[in-house]
Write a protein that binds this DNA or RNA. Structure first.
Lengths: 151, 151
DNA sequence: TGACAAATTGATACTAGGTATCATGAACGC
DNA sequence: GCGTTCATGATACCTAGTATCAATTTGTCA
């Protein structure tokens, strides 16, 4: 749980490889979200970078999604959230209390998809699996939850 | 593919059981969506019922979600879509071309969730699985697609 | 049947998340 | 250094959905 996960190759370089320019706003956004191991929203980025326009934040998020550098997922109430992609193909756990996002890979999932594929009319072209969890921090009582979904 | 699936108990009765009144707009909305085996959007309902206010449509959808009479899912591009719940707990297939929604149950899925649960920090409280497919109709060439997602 | 309280409705305004437009400004290849 | 092309921020707009509120409809009870 405390290994230096941040040995990911430069995200800005990945964008440049796809023909996009290295600009100050893009670098700033990437720097911010590299610090957010637990997922983020567009609004959060905007608050931390008040000089960067809202449109630019959404545009950059879109580029990062296209480059598979981040992925988009939904809280159980539908609120969108983004998360850095650390491993190639993976799925997410989302804490229903604090919104923290985790990743997991499971070979079983892929096997399952192939198995289900034969039962389903048509051809499977993709899948999305999200597990809603109560994370360790939120299970210990009277821990302030960062992003409560209570009434 | 042509069995009379509509032997579902009265949806309006389910709402009444939950303390809601049987009103003309609600009955109209339910009648419309009972005819939509393949999923629907709020906007579609609104177009078919121009005399029913937009707010009422969203309010009714919310009640139906709470009563588990319908469920909400997302197309691969994030566009929301609703679908009648035919079986108790199930997952969805969504055609990436025409948007048609199917349901499936798989005991394997539930077993998988329990298995994954032991590998994940925290407690699983729910899950969402969506399979993106190209459905039979859309696989046969030059079939007009109802709801294309192309560029 | 009629009256009444409570629930529901439609209109409207509003919010969140995201996209389109467009004139100005910055990158980068030479 | 310069010009083209890309990117930016401001702004307006869009879709999906919620809040407000006066007017209407329901269900109930006499």
């Amino acid at each position: 749980m405390n290994a230096p996960v941040t040995s990911r190759p430069d995200i800005m370089a990945a964008l440049e490889d796809r023909g996009h320019r290295s600009t100050a706003p893009r670098r700033a956004i990437i720097r911010i979200l590299e610090g957010k191991q637990e997922g983020f929203t567009a609004e959060e980025i905007g608050k931390e970078l008040p000089d960067v326009g809202r449109a630019t934040i959404f545009r950059t998020i879109k580029l990062l999604l296209e480059a598979d550098a981040i992925c988009k997922l939904n809280l159980i109430n539908g609120a969108p959230r983004y998360s850095l992609s650390r491993v190639e193909h993976h799925h997410h756990t989302v804490c229903v209390r604090c919104g923290n996002v985790g990743e997991f890979r499971a070979a079983t999932v892929e096997r399952l998809m192939r198995a289900i594929g034969s039962d389903i009319p048509g051809k499977i072209v993709g899948h999305r699996i999200e597990l809603y969890v109560t994370c360790r921090q939120c299970m210990t009582p009277d821990q302030p939850s960062r992003n409560s979904e209570g009434p």
